[in-house]
Design a protein around this nucleic acid. Sequence first.
DNA 1: ATGAAAGCGCTAACAA
DNA 2: TTGTTAGCGCTTTCAT
Lengths: 326, 326
Amino acid sequence: MTEKPKLEDVAKLAGVSPTTVSRVLNNRGAISDKTRQRVNEAIEQLNYHPNEIARSLFVSKTHFIGLIFPTTGHPFYGEIVFHIENILSEKNYKVLICNTMDQADKETKYLNMLLANQVDGMIVGAHNVGIDTYQRAHLPIVAIDRKVSDTITVISSDNYQGGRIAAEELLRQGRTKTIHINSAPQHEAPSSYQRRKGYEDVLAEHGLPFKTYTVELPFDTETKQQMLSSILDEHPDLDGMFLSDDITAAIALSMVRNRKKDIFIIGYDGTETVTTCLPELTTVVQPIRAMAQLAVDLLLKEINNDFTDIKKNYMLPVKLRRGEQL
Amino acid sequence: MTEKPKLEDVAKLAGVSPTTVSRVLNNRGAISDKTRQRVNEAIEQLNYHPNEIARSLFVSKTHFIGLIFPTTGHPFYGEIVFHIENILSEKNYKVLICNTMDQADKETKYLNMLLANQVDGMIVGAHNVGIDTYQRAHLPIVAIDRKVSDTITVISSDNYQGGRIAAEELLRQGRTKTIHINSAPQHEAPSSYQRRKGYEDVLAEHGLPFKTYTVELPFDTETKQQMLSSILDEHPDLDGMFLSDDITAAIALSMVRNRKKDIFIIGYDGTETVTTCLPELTTVVQPIRAMAQLAVDLLLKEINNDFTDIKKNYMLPVKLRRGEQL
DNA sequence: ATGAAAGCGCTAACAA
DNA sequence: TTGTTAGCGCTTTCAT
């Protein structure tokens, strides 16, 4: 027997019907100890492993969850994907991972792929397709950090507070000529808007000037460098910057050091990786693990048709992490 | 019709048999333009999407690939997972992601889960279960950076050269009292051994002293800090360190800066993230994208039963990236 | 406590 | 060119 054994083979070897084997496997119905034992022996002997795909087809539940994110190569997404998968696997769900690289066509393709593979639900952290595209899925979906929708649950960190906290810290550091660089994904990510609003509100309240650059941030470092470089050229008297994520902040930090400028930099995200690599960076920390936990909790509630206490919009608190002095 | 439409529904609406619909979907056999059109209209009208799970069951091929790695939260793994998924999705394969967190029991559980879900193959970058555990799977498997095996293809970067390159750079920087900290995963990862050997050989060739610490590196920063701290205490005259990965190197770098020591640090991996965050770090760069590409190429060859030109062991070249001056 | 039969949604012989 | 039939590996009524 070199072929993969199936349930029927086990049944034959144990001298029982397939039904009985199935019952043993799933602990259902009443089975005599004798038969249970014989079945288990046969399973052992054949090194039998049930085919989950066949099972999924029958019960029309796969226990697959689709994750759509820009790229696990970015620390924020790499970490949140890790936490989500980790929490889901505890609950016996399996994760299909999709990296859209911010390309709308990929996102659409992935969405269809996940539907075709009968995922029980999805968690989406990518931003290039209108959220209405997802509504058509008629599936439990939780989104992270995107436009609020009537039908899809959205989780985000408190971006407005994040913007305020950053601006307040710049003031506390005595910086008065600051700018904010704001990466706006194609489809109106509310996170960017809220962060910007928070930052601008604080400065306005203090009667200070501010300038916000809204740019489409590419993933590659070089383009970011050029962009930051020309912004620095335009503002020779700049003394503070609030960047939309830590990686961009890291680039700005090196650049400012190279130019020997005294510009105070604040980032956003506060991932483990960046915190470890750049302990001197001040940043607004998102509660990544809590966001992952909440996303999973809400998704599983929806999957189990428990819609009690499910709001459409969740906001988790952020906090400032001050960089360590060098 | 609020239920998900199936192939049969399409057939009925189009007034043809299920077979015909299947043929249209898969572009197989000869179909008249008229029927093809009618079928396509019915598909459109019902917003029908084929059930891949049912299809998988029938053809006993899922196009699922399992990825077993320590954690996508670590930049090296996050990036390699990204590349692997990216390349695989181009070939219409789907990726199930598993984060073992270096726990053997999780790794075993994931392995069984992947087998139960009928993956067509696996790429493994985790290190806590003996490789023989995988042999039993009787499945195409490619391993990254682990013990060479007779039966499983292993890809690694040239760790011995990596060790040599690092040691040579330390010498070039005029460092003569150096140590190497070597994170040895539980089950004899050859990568650690080879890097160490390369480092030690070079120093021995120059008649220089060296010291290698082989420690089980935990994931958390604090424990690493404590460990590094006591090593630094033991060696007040140290002037060079070669760390087994960039994150640990980053921690060492901050620590050395805090202590105002002149210790030259060399890391290992050269991920985009760390390169961006710490451009001043000198490191041995692994060809991450090339490793991902090769892993996928070999895996798909094995899946397609093409074993020509498949060796059991592949080594890709590393290079030194010198940190930028601050 | 156990088994026979039907079927989850799809595809591939084999016929016509 | 199209349809009929059987079956991928499993589970679940419904009998007994």
